[in-house]
Computed example of a mutant assay.
Amino acid sequence: MAVEKFMGTTPQRAFVGIIIIQAIAVLAMIGIAFAFVEVDVRTSSDSRYKTIPCYLAMFGLAEIFELAMALDALKARNIVQLVGILAFHLGLVVFAALQVDEAHTALDLSKEAGCNTFAVLCDGSLWRKVEPFFIVNPIIIAVSWIFMLFFVRKLFEEFGWAVFELVGANPLTKTMYQWYQIMICLLKFDFFFFGSVTMQLIILVLASNSVEFGLTVAAIPIVLLLLVGAGIAVQREIKWLMSISLVIMLAAETYFSKQEIDMGLLLYKLVRFYEPSSRGEYISTRATLTFFTIIAFIILFMTFGVGLRCFSDFDKGLTQAKVQTVPEKVIYSSPNSPGVGGDRQSNYLDRRLSIE
């Protein structure tokens, strides 16, 4: 029996192929819609019209991220990350569905009194032209998710026993390793969702000369260092660095205000989307910004909790398993091998049952 090589099996290639095909299809639909909009509307003239190019950028980032996560999960035989990708893909379905209404709000002003902007917006003709390209996207993503689910089940069978090669059959050690995998997976999703919220705010909403713009940009390297530091700390079991990372995670979920300068990340941003003084700035982006911000808040909170769990497992003999990789070829003797063949086959079955 052997651990198959990276991209060496049909389920692995099919899983990656589905992601690539649906990415091409979705980006093509958005690209066509963007091209139609650019012909008739100057998207840079008003923040509400930037919804389409931002949507294109967001999906481009999401598809690249998902492909990178898939390749990484297959390389590492990480079943936890494959499940995370399925959840992320469902999030893309929700995001694509939300964009239908937000693009409608941005591109169809026919119901607004005294519309005097672009004619194609005032009579709704532009929206009717691009509407099919928006509606088809959540359908494409949902159908691709069904196929991905089928092949993840195949990959679960393929990778199900590979953890044994790293941590052995001890249930306690196996559980600690699974929590470690969850932590690393959450850190990666933290990176994406924080980057997504930040990108949308910078492109769509914030004025480059505002205090909030400067604070948002300044937060980017801080959060990146936090996530990288937390990843290194949990892998190498560096207690002082893990302690600092957990404290900053907790602080990042709160917001503070002093006089006229607001500081903070997630909860502060969420409040800004709905308070009367600023809600008008987010008229065509509120739904997706709310969705991404809430998901980012939940994932960061989960990361903090799982980080505490992983911290409690430090110095329990898991460090070596965290830094080594599964060998791509691990050969077991066949039942016909002289001497110990039957015992090897029995051991393999015991190992398989232990993992499952």
Rank of each mutant, 00 (worst) to 15 (best):
Y49W: 12
K50S: 09
K50R: 14
I52E: 05
C54I: 14
Y55I: 09
A57M: 14
A57V: 15
M58Q: 12
G60I: 14
A62M: 13
A62Q: 11
I64Y: 13
I64W: 13
F65A: 09
E66Y: 12
E66W: 11
E66L: 15
L67M: 13
M69S: 13
M69V: 14
M69P: 10
M69L: 15
A70M: 13
D72Q: 15
N78G: 05
Q81H: 11
L82M: 14
L82R: 05
L82N: 08
V83M: 10
I85W: 09
I85T: 06
L86N: 11
L86F: 14
A87I: 08
A87T: 11
F88I: 09
H89D: 07
H89Y: 08
L90V: 13
G91R: 05
G91F: 08
G91N: 08
G91H: 07
V93L: 02
V93M: 07
V93W: 02
F95H: 08
F95V: 05
A97G: 07
L98P: 02
Q99D: 05
Q99T: 09
D101W: 07
A103F: 04
A103M: 04
H104C: 06
L107H: 05
L107A: 00
L109H: 14
K111D: 08
A113C: 00
A113Q: 02
A113N: 05
A113D: 07
G114K: 05
G114D: 03
N116P: 00
T117C: 01
T117H: 06
T117K: 11
T117M: 00
F118S: 06
L121A: 01
L121K: 03
G124Q: 00
S125L: 00
L126K: 00
W127A: 04
K129I: 04
